[in-house]
Write a protein that binds this DNA or RNA. Structure first.
Lengths: 223, 223
DNA sequence: CGTACCATTGACGACGGTCAAAAAACGTGG
DNA sequence: CCACGTTTTTTGACCGTCGTCAATGGTACG
C-alpha cells in the first residue's frame, strides 16, 4: 500500500518550532500528509516494510493477524488521536485496515527518527508511546483469560473511556470485529450483550449504539 | 525488594570501551551487580518504582498479575541472557518472581538511561529490546485464542527454541505456571501432555523432562 | 426498493473447567 | 540412607460455558 506521491512534505522549517508538551503528536501533525482510506481498505500489511508512522485523524482502524486456518485476532483498535504502526524493527507485525471511512496522517518513519535524534523530547515521547502500546497489549492478554461476559464488559468499559460521548457509545466496528478482538464468536458477543440488556446494565439503542445504564454493575462484572 | 547497597558500581571507565554489537547486554554485565534470589522469591512487585533493569544470569523468572478473584496470568518467562523489568513509565506493570534459585544482574535504570544518552548504540538496543518485548506479548495474545492442545504445543515449541539441549526439554516451571501462562488449568495442561505422549509426539521422561519426538506432528498441531 | 451485509436467536454438542482422590516426586531431618 | 510430610502431578467423573450450524430478522446503501 501507499504507493502514492503526496507523502513527502517539506518539514525542516516547521519542525524547528515544535511544542514542548506533545511534541511527537505535534510533529506528526506538522510533518504528516493526510490520506483518506475508505471502509475496509488496507493501510499496511503484515511483513511489509514499516516505512511510515500513522496517526488517526478521523474514523477508526483495526490491526490484526490471520492464522493459517482463517481465525483472525484483532490486536488493537485505534481512534482519533491515536498513533499506530510504530515498530522497533523494520517490518510491520500486524496488518491494518480502516474500519470506517477514515482520515490518517502519514509520516515517514525515517523523518521522525531523524527528528528524535535532535529533539530530545520527541525521542522521549516515541519511547513513551511504545511503552503505552506494550501496556495496552499486556492488559489485553489479561482480558483474554476472562469469561465471555467479563470480556465483553471490559470491551465496553475500554471503549466508553476512549470514545467521547458520555454514557452513549457509538461503535464503529462490527460484532465480528469485537469477537475477534475478544477471542470469542460474534454469536457469543451478541448473546452477551443481550444478557447485559436483560439485566439492565446496558441498553441497545441500536446494534451500534449502546447506552451504559449501570456502570456500577458493569464494574462489578469486570471480574 | 532490593534494599541493599552493593548495587552501585563505578562504570564510567568501563563503559567507554563498550562493544559495538551487543552493547546493551555488555553494559549490563559491566555495570550490574549479581544478586541471588531463591525459589519463589519476589524480584519486584506490581506498581513498585521501576528503578532497576534486570538480566537473568542463571535460573528462570516469571512475571505475572493476579486478578481480584485470584486468577493469575503469567505474562512471560525469562531465561538466562534475557533482559526484563525495562519499563517506559516509572512503575512496574507486572510482579516478578524467581521460578528456581536464580542469579540476576541488576543495574540502575538511571545509569542505563544516562549511558544511552551518550552511547547511541545502547539507546538503539534499548529501543530494540522494548520492541522485541512488544512482539513477544503480541505473539502471546495469538496463543491465547487457540485451543488447549494448540496452546500447549505452542508452549513446547517456544521453550525448545529458548532452552538449550536439542530435543530434550528441561522445564524449570510447574504445571500451574504453564497453565497460568496459557490461560488454562493445570489439569488441562497435564491431560494435554498425556494426549501428546499417547500420540507419540512427545515423551514424558519425567514431569519436568520432556522429549520432543515428532516435531513435524507438533508443528502441524500448532494450527 | 431490492440486495448485500450485519445481527440476533435457537438447538445442540464438545471442549475445557471444577471438584475430588490417588500417585509420584521432592526435600528434610532423624 | 531411609522414612515421612509436603508439594506437585496425574487421573477420573461430571457439568457449564461457549462454539457450531442454521435460520430468521434488521439495516444500510446503491
Amino acid at each position: 500500500m501507499l504507493t502514492q506521491n503526496a507523502i513527502h512534505t517539506d518539514f525542516t522549517r516547521k519542525s524547528a518550532r515544535v511544542q514542548m508538551f506533545d511534541s511527537l503528536s505535534e510533529s506528526i501533525n506538522l510533518m504528516g500528509a493526510t490520506v483518506p482510506f475508505s471502509r475496509n481498505a488496507e493501510i499496511f500489511g503484515e511483513n511489509e516494510p514499516a516505512d511510515y508512522v500513522y496517526k488517526v485523524v478521523a474514523g477508526a482502524v483495526r490491526t490484526y493477524k490471520v492464522l493459517a486456518d482463517g481465525r483472525r485476532q484483532i490486536g488493537a483498535f485505534y481512534l482519533p488521536g491515536d498513533i499506530f504502526g510504530l515498530e522497533a524493527k523494520d517490518t510491520h507485525t500486524f496488518s491494518s485496515e480502516a474500519i470506517t471511512d477514515t482520515k490518517i496522517l502519514v509520516v515517514k518513519r525515517s523523518a521522525l527518527m531523524a527528528l528524535a535524534a535532535s529533539e530530545n523530547e520527541v525521542a522521549r515521547q516515541l519511547w513513551s508511546t511504545m511503552g503505552q502500546e506494550l501496556r495496552r497489549v499486556q492488559e489485553h492478554t489479561l482480558v483474554l483469560i476472562k469469561t465471555a461476559k467479563e470480556r465483553v464488559v471490559s470491551f465496553l468499559l475500554e471503549m466508553i473511556e476512549r470514545i467521547p460521548g458520555g454514557s452513549q457509545l457509538e461503535l464503529p466496528m462490527t460484532r465480528q470485529d469485537i469477537a475477534d478482538y475478544l477471542g470469542l464468536t460474534m454469536e457469543t458477543v451478541s448473546r452477551t450483550l443481550a444478557d447485559l440488556e436483560n439485566s439492565s446494565a446496558i441498553e441497545l439503542a441500536s446494534a451500534r449504539r449502546i447506552v451504559l445504564r449501570d456502570r456500577g454493575a458493569l464494574g462489578r462484572l469486570n471480574s
